[in-house]
Every structure is written in C-alpha cells, then in structure tokens.
Amino acid sequence: MSSYVITTQNITNSRRIRRFLSLLFTLASRDIRSRYRRSVLGPIWSILQPLILMVVFTLLRSLTGLREGGVTTDLMLTYTVLVPWQFFSNSINRAGPSVIGNGSIMRKIRVPREMFPVVGVMTAGFDFAMSALVLTGMVIALGEPVNLLALLWLPVLMIMLTLLALGVGMIIASFGVYRRDFILASGFFTQIWLYASPIIYTLEEAQGQLSETWQTVYLLNPTVGILEGFRSVLADGTAPDLDLLATSVPATLIFFLLGWGIYRYMSQYFADVL
C-alpha cells in the first residue's frame, strides 16, 4: 500500500477552489484563443459548421422524400437539434485527446486530472454559445411561438447532454492514453452516432420505419430523448415528451458515472505512460 500526503499551511478550501477555477478557465481560454488566433474568420467558424450542416441535411431530407411542411420547418427541425448535437460531438472529440494533448503538464505537475476532459467540454460549450445566438434569432424569426414554460426544460436538457458527453469523453480519454485506437476511432464513432440519433430525421419518422423490437433498441440510445426534447422546446414550442426523456436518464447516468470512475482510477497512472 502506498500513500501520498501534502500538508500546506495557509491554504483554505475557498482558495483551493479559486485556484481550481482559475486553472479551468485559463486552460479553456488557452484552447479557444489558440484555436482561432491565426484565422481570419475566428469564432465565426463555430457558427458556420452547424449552419452548413443544416442546409445539407435539409437538402437531404427533400431528396429522400422526408418533407414536413415547408423548407423553413425542415430548417428548424434540423437546426434545433444540430446545435446541441455539435456541442455533444465536439465535447467528445475534444475530451478524448485532451489527456494526450496535455501530457507534458500531467507528466510533470500535479494538477486535478479531471480538469482536462472538462476543459474539452467547456471549449465545445463556447462554440455552442456562439451557435445559440444564431439559434435564438432563428427561433424568434422562423419558429413556432415560444412557450416560456417549456424553455425551463433547456437547462435540464443541457445538463443531461453535458454529463453524457463528459462520461463518453472520459472513457475515450482513459483508454486512449493506453491505446490510441480509441481516439482515432472517436471521430468515426460520433459520426455513426449522428446517424443513429434523430437529427436528419425525426423520431416519429424513424418509428414509422422500425419494427417494435428495433424501436426499443433505438430508444436505448440516450441522445434520442435529449435531442427530441430540444426539438420539442425549440421547434414545436412545447415541453419535451417526459416519458421519452425518462428513457434517456439511466443511460446518461450510467455513462457519466462509469466514465468518471474509470477516469479517476486510470488517471493516477497516466503520468507513467504519457
């Protein structure tokens, strides 16, 4: 058995928390600033990506004969879920390699190790905030009348999405340190997850195509309930279908707790292999 104890005077818990938050925000701002520093469009890139995908997916919908109402309806249907989806997949794809990317720090300096995947999610959150501005404008201009009470569900949906992304990202990060395949596969993996989630199509449209057994399997995917929730609130102006949202809760919690636990245990030994 081994133990490692540091005793320090004059360091109160509140100071410790302030140090932790300083590091968190400095690292996030490092990643955001350095990403856009030598680009012309800068943070506009984070808005462009979901906007372009929105156009592509709307075109896809009309090509495959999935048409609900007019073009604006289709634009709204895809964009309202694309923005949270981009946050989700960006979070995973940034949290995954975050440990390796910060290897030089972890190898040398004792820092709270959970920091790095969390920073990955935070930078994805920055892109999300930029897109959210556009989304707000679109909902006001093109969407159904906004239901203020339904809007209260948004924080709940965001928390669930964040926990899920963090959990998955931490699992990829933990194993990726030992085997790079996990990180190399993560982009591909989120791509497949995109098709397995109601983004190009709606849940209703999917259910029309699936047998009863497959519908149950489909609902195991925790992003289904969360993304449909976003769609209800933002595109339809109604509260999320609570039964549907409830199906996402167990998987979300499992992913989060599993990811956090694996990461906490394995991260002790990251410095040995980085």
Partner: peptide
C-alpha cells in the same frame, strides 16, 4: 511531485510544492 503514485510506501510533503521539472 505527486504526478505518479508510489506502488508501496509513504511520502509526506509539508508545504507547497513547486516542481521545476
């Protein structure tokens, strides 16, 4: 520095550590 744990044994550090590694 506390970046990697010992397999066995104890380490006690009294004070803030500054790792110039």
């Amino acid at each position: 520095a506390g970046v990697t744990p010992a397999t066995r044994g104890t380490v006690r550090m009294h004070g803030t550590i500054f790792p110039m590694i």
